[in-house]
Simulated assay, not measured.
Amino acid sequence: MALDMLTGPDAAELLEAAVSTAGGRLEGWRVTQVDHRGAVTTVAYAATVQWPTGRTDDVLGATSLAPGDEPPRIPGTLTLSDGQNRVCVWRLPDDPGLPGLATAMNQQALSSLLTSFGLDSSGLRTDLVSYRPKRRAVIRISAAGGVIYAKVLPPGDVEALHRRHEMLHGAGVPVPHSLGWTDDGLLLLENLPGTPLRRRLLAPGPDLTAGLPDPHDVIGVLDRFPPGVLGLNRRRPWSRRAPQYAAMVGEALPAEAERARQLAAVVAEGLRHTGLGSDPTHGDFYEAQMMVDPAGRLVGLLDVDTVGPGSRADDLACALAHCEALALSSPRHADRSLAMSRLWRPVFERQVPAEQLRLSTAGVLMSLATGPHRVQRPNWEDATSRMLDRIEDMLRAS
């Protein structure tokens, strides 16, 4: 099974083969992300490697190949087989799904690109902000001209995301202005003002709601989405994929498979006669996507890849479910996260049917229950079970 092969002890042999082919020696490794989707599993690793030039901390990636898939023919990737499974392994930045990473993480190539966009690249520094193998990465770029961000996507997705940013920015939605895109999948975005709302939630303080957005302000940002959003592709909301995510939970944690399946079935049955909606939606609307000023006003909105037609209830449910998930994952900060949920929920329930909001929140939380395993959180099994406990409590509420 590819999941066991890529996350168990045998993964060391795969990584050692990939590193030694490039001239290094693997000294240590650990799994940092697991993306398990049916026949294909993709994993990221933090690795310590001894190279002829010295020891470095590297990011490695590996993905299983489905039957019939052609192995990528990209320099820096290595395809291996144990007789049953075939696996492609690489070292950042040679991700076969994100060719733009090679540009974004190469000082000379990136400097030339910034210059071609009319930007001052002197004093160039880069930081890898986030990385999901084969799916996306975000690079923070600092130079004399200021700070911008490069979003790295599969090349076929980048122009459409640029158009989304143009549409929303032109309508006055506080999203980053797109400076342009490249054929290999780089989207250059201006920096937004403000502080990430998640950081505000994790900050200590006696007043739990100080500096948190008013729920009417949150709804007001969604109200500014232009009608053109309804012409974009519809994305199936998180809540409607609860059975799919329950199956992923069960595969990673068989002891909870039946409970996850039953909870997801309750969500699916409760939403069965509810339409998918025809509202302009963000599609992944929660605190990590929101930037706020010192007073808590929402001054920025990130990650508009999922923008399209849908139900306002799903956007609001996503925001509430992430409050619950953040409280469960960071008990020290749970009071403030739950205080924000209590602040927002009554207003949200006046916007959309309360029962639909409750069921959709439970469905989104099921999707988030895959997170502890995906990011390999310590004691992820217990964290997953606590998520299911909260979903169960939510579905019992009347």
Rank of each mutant, 00 (worst) to 15 (best):
Ala2Glu: 07
Pro9Gln: 09
Ala11Phe: 08
Ala22Pro: 06
Val31Arg: 06
Gln33Tyr: 14
Gln33Asn: 10
Gln50Lys: 15
Arg55Leu: 14
Arg55Ala: 13
Asp57Tyr: 10
Pro67Phe: 05
Ile74Val: 15
Val87Cys: 12
Val87Pro: 08
Val89Trp: 12
Leu92Tyr: 10
Pro93Gly: 09
Gly97Pro: 11
Ala104Cys: 04
Ala109Glu: 09
Ser112Lys: 06
Thr115Val: 05
Ser116Glu: 06
Phe117Thr: 00
Gly118Arg: 01
Arg125His: 13
Thr126Pro: 13
Asp127Pro: 02
Ala143His: 10
Val147Ser: 07
Ile148Ser: 12
Pro154Ser: 01
Gly156Lys: 13
Glu159His: 15
Leu161Gln: 10
Arg163Lys: 03
His165Ser: 01
Met167Gln: 12
His169Val: 02
Gly170Trp: 02
His177Ala: 13
Trp181Pro: 11
Asp184Val: 07
Glu190Thr: 10
Glu190Lys: 05
Pro193His: 07
Pro193Ile: 02
Pro193Gly: 08
Thr195Glu: 15
Arg198Trp: 13
Arg200Leu: 02
Leu208Val: 04
Asp217Asn: 10
Phe225Leu: 12
Gly228Asn: 10
Leu230Ile: 00
Leu232Met: 08
Arg236Glu: 07
Trp238Met: 14
Trp238Pro: 09
Ala242Leu: 03
Ala247His: 05
Met248Asp: 09
Met248Phe: 12
Glu251Gln: 15
Ala252Lys: 04
Leu253Gln: 10
Leu253Asp: 01
Pro254Ser: 01
Glu256Pro: 06
Arg261Ala: 11
Ala268Tyr: 01
Glu269Gly: 13
Arg272Val: 08
His273Lys: 12
Thr274Tyr: 11
Leu276Ala: 12
Pro280Tyr: 06
His282Cys: 09
Pro294Phe: 03
Gly296Arg: 03
Arg297His: 09
Leu301Val: 13
Leu301Ser: 12
Asp303Pro: 15
Asp303Arg: 14
Asp303Glu: 06
Ser311Gln: 14
Cys318Arg: 07
Ala319Gly: 05
His322Tyr: 13
Ala327Ser: 01
Pro331Phe: 04
Asp335Met: 04
Ala339Arg: 03
Leu343Tyr: 02
Arg345Tyr: 01
Leu357Lys: 04
Ala362Val: 07
Gly363Glu: 04
Gly363Met: 03
Leu365Met: 12
Ser367Tyr: 09
Gly371Tyr: 15
Val375Lys: 09
Val375Phe: 15
Pro378Gly: 05
Met387Leu: 15
Asp389Thr: 03
Ile391Asp: 03
Asp393Leu: 03
Ala397Met: 04
Ala397Glu: 10
